[in-house]
Nucleic acid binder design. Structure first.
Lengths: 247, 247
DNA sequence: TGTTGACCCTCACGTTACGTAATGCCTTAA
DNA sequence: TTAAGGCATTACGTAACGTGAGGGTCAACA
């Protein structure tokens, strides 16, 4: 599909699609010989995701990060969006009742505190931040993604392979004790790799926290357990032990 | 109340209040000796209005125009906002059902057209424009308000008085024929005053349309009929006759 | 085959609604 | 009286496009 068709279909402007292309948020799968942008069905699905997130108040930069995460799961995203929309609806209901109260108040039939006059507005200018940062935006993940983006495809591939190798060797140990020398050696390497590959230095506490996240956050669990069911839990335990014993 | 108190109460930033002051959208009723902004309860009510309109997607410039309109009626505004919020809720419901469908679709249990994938998004990047322009944004009103804003208080007062005088003399005639020489003379003056006082020239057709608006748009009707019940209708008829007979 | 007219491209500057310092004056509690 | 916290102004920064300008592309129609 050409730009205008897409734009008309979803009700956004051509310029918007150009913009999304510019910032690398949605690049058309093909371009014709003449340089025309040609969008595929898969592009449309991504666009749907983008618009949903946008509706929820996410800035484009964050949306880009989210949908580019290796562990991005469309169904989970959709469920999250659904949930947030439901909350938003409740929010609107609150505003409606605030309006009703205000009208009553104007007619003098009821009293109203200043605080009540603004109920429904208390999304302190970051509508998405509350739960979103928990679920979709860990600082570390953000930074590592940024780092990832700055690497060439080749570098990314090399790094990915290095990390996969580590995952595999850890997976092999996952039914042994996370406190064994072998496991701890592997986890130490894991710690070193994380610290050297991404632009950040994990404190031991943060490292421990990260391990906890591996089991708390389904998305991580899912992508880690690909290397062996139970790996995420094993890593959490090993990481916690490592952190506690190297202070 | 000082800025930060207000900001905290309604959940917006201090900068936002500064901004609203800068652009003349919400000027604090008082300023302390030291130059501190001091907001009154009335300011808070206005702020509530502003935030409601903002929630509905109105640009600040438009909001400023709306709440500065001489015929601005808070209760009517609140009812409009309520109605629009209800629509917005329906909109969200549509998006939720789109998400549900998409999830079903992913699982392969149902088919889905490209169009269906974007239902709920079709607010062609001007959520408010549709009905809003009808109800809140006549081009002429906009322009005249802009003109009004550029006038000094004194000039405004003089002009207002001139127009009121005309309203009164028209009101006196409202039970006679709108086609009489007297009525037509008064209407001619009305036409001249409108054309000279505001930055625009009404064509005869537009003038006729304006008359129609006086009865179609409650807000106009209300503020006009203050000078005498039925004046709006009388003016519409007189204006139509004037327009038709001076081509 | 030539010529519209609708669509496409890439600059590139404009706009809205604030964010984010920097710098310096109030004010109030310790 | 001094340190902390709030306030003011000035001014540059940012996000997400809007809005032309200048110039190819492509299918249809004369």
């Amino acid at each position: 599909m050409k730009v205008k068709e897409v734009a008309d279909l979803v009700g956004i402007s051509v310029r918007t699609l150009h913009h999304y292309d510019e910032i690398g948020l949605l690049k058309p799968e093909q371009t014709s010989e003449a340089g025309y942008r040609l969008y595929s069905d898969h592009n449309l699905e991504m666009l749907q995701q983008i618009l949903f997130f946008k509706e929820l108040g996410f800035p484009l930069k964050k949306i880009k990060e989210i949908i580019n995460r290796p562990c991005f799961d469309r169904e989970e995203a959709l469920k999250f969006q659904r949930k947030t929309l439901v909350e938003k609806r409740a929010h609107i209901d609150k505003m409606i009742s605030t309006i009703d109260k205000t009208i009553e108040h104007m007619k003098g039939s009821i009293e109203m505190t200043n605080k009540e006059k603004f109920e429904g507005f208390d999304f302190s200018h970051n509508p998405y931040e509350q739960e979103a940062r928990e679920r979709w935006g860990d600082e570390a993940v953000d930074k590592s993604n940024a780092k990832l983006a700055s690497m060439t495809k080749e570098e990314q591939k090399v790094m990915q392979e290095e990390m996969n190798a580590l995952y595999r060797s850890l997976a092999a140990l996952r039914h042994t004790s996370p406190e064994s020398d072998e496991a701890q050696a592997a986890i130490k390497k894991w710690y070193t790799v994380l610290n050297s590959n991404f632009g950040i230095h994990y404190s031991l506490e943060a490292f421990k926290g990260l391990g906890q996240m591996y089991v708390d956050d389904e998305r991580f669990t899912k992508s880690i357990d690909q290397f062996g069911v139970g790996l995420a839990k094993f890593m959490r335990d090993a990481m916690a032990y490592y952190a506690d014993n190297n202070k």
